[in-house]
Design a protein around this nucleic acid. Structure first.
Length: 291
DNA sequence: ACCGCACCCTGAGCGC
DNA sequence: TGCGCTCAGGGTGCGG
């Protein structure tokens, strides 16, 4: 699910629930590669601590603990971070969802996909990390908050300058879209917003990166920032799994220009949107508006 | 250094 | 209703 806007929305909404509250109990599911730090070690390190800060690096979240350690979180494709008092049908499987009368669900009961559960000593809402596909990650960090995944990240997508994108694409023969998705170049852009930004910049996703001009790189950087900023304002995209920490849906999907609109008409020129596969991922574009 | 590919996992949607 | 198939917004590690 989550790209930079969804992670940032999550960070902002999770902060008031997490910061300044002492963790009283930690429950987890069985060890799996979801847990880069084994569950037992995670439990003992977290109980009794309080988070003082939570920051975002690309699609990663890092919480600083008062013990000095840190907690690294990545939502993968289907990760959901939310509080126990949500009431969102999106958190149920479709079959279970269909059986509910509107407004019937109250709160959330942890299920087999809820891998990390934090309870606090004030008796208030708990924090849950649920992830059906387990592509998400949890890891305890040392006092320097060091992690090879974070070290590999390029400039945050909201902070990159046109000159850097231009320079970083000069020796790249791969499609420009693959560079936008490369977290070592710019951190935070995923499949949806890469397609949206390429549309706004008028650049076809399959174009070799080094054939993108300086002016187009500048337009792309503007488009990336604009689309990410707009998606954050809209609360993210809730295309399949994303749900805000309070259970609300994002609305950016209602504003999509091209993503997952194959065969539908371009909002500007009415040409049917086309789909390609680039780097084993679907890419969507308008053949008229993008060159 | 760069590039393509397999792989981690589960569920939804589709055609039959 | 059920089966088999394809697809899904991410990231890593491998071999060429």
């Amino acid at each position: 699910m989550p790209e930079l806007p969804e992670v940032e929305v999550t960070r902002r909404r999770i902060a008031p629930v997490l910061l300044g509250r002492r963790i009283a109990r930690v429950n987890t599911t069985r060890p799996s590669y979801f847990f880069l730090t084994p569950p037992g070690k995670l439990r003992s390190a977290l109980v009794g601590t309080t988070s003082t800060e939570i920051v975002r690096h690309g699609k990663y979240l890092v919480a600083r603990l008062d013990s000095g350690a840190g907690l690294l979180l990545h939502l993968g494709m289907t990760g959901q971070l939310f509080t126990s008092d949500v009431h969102s049908p999106r958190l149920l499987r479709k079959t279970a969802r269909a059986a509910l009368a509107p407004g019937e669900q109250r709160g959330f009961q942890p299920d087999a996909h809820t891998h990390l559960m934090l309870e606090f000593d004030d008796g208030g809402p708990s924090l849950y990390f649920r992830d059906v596909r387990k592509f998400g990650k949890v890891r305890l960090l040392n006092e320097k908050l060091a992690d090879p995944r974070l070290d590999r990240l390029g400039t945050d997508a909201l902070a990159i300058e046109p000159a850097e994108l231009y320079e970083r694409t000069r020796d790249r023969k791969v499609p420009i879209k693959s560079v936008l998705l490369d977290q070592a170049v710019l951190a935070g852009v995923g499949n949806i917003y890469a397609d949206e930004a390429l549309y706004l910049a008028g650049v076809r996703p399959a174009r070799a990166a080094r054939r993108v001009t300086r002016e187009e790189c500048a337009a792309l950087v503007r488009a990336v920032k604009r689309v990410l900023g707009r998606a954050i304002e809209a609360g993210g995209s809730s295309i399949s799994d994303f749900v805000g920490p309070d259970g609300s849906d994002g609305h950016y999907q209602d504003e999509r220009w091209v993503y997952s609109r194959t065969g539908e008409r371009c909002r500007r020129c009415a040409t049917p949107i086309r789909r390609l596969v680039i780097g084993q991922r679907s890419a969507h574009f308008c053949p008229q508006c993008q060159k």
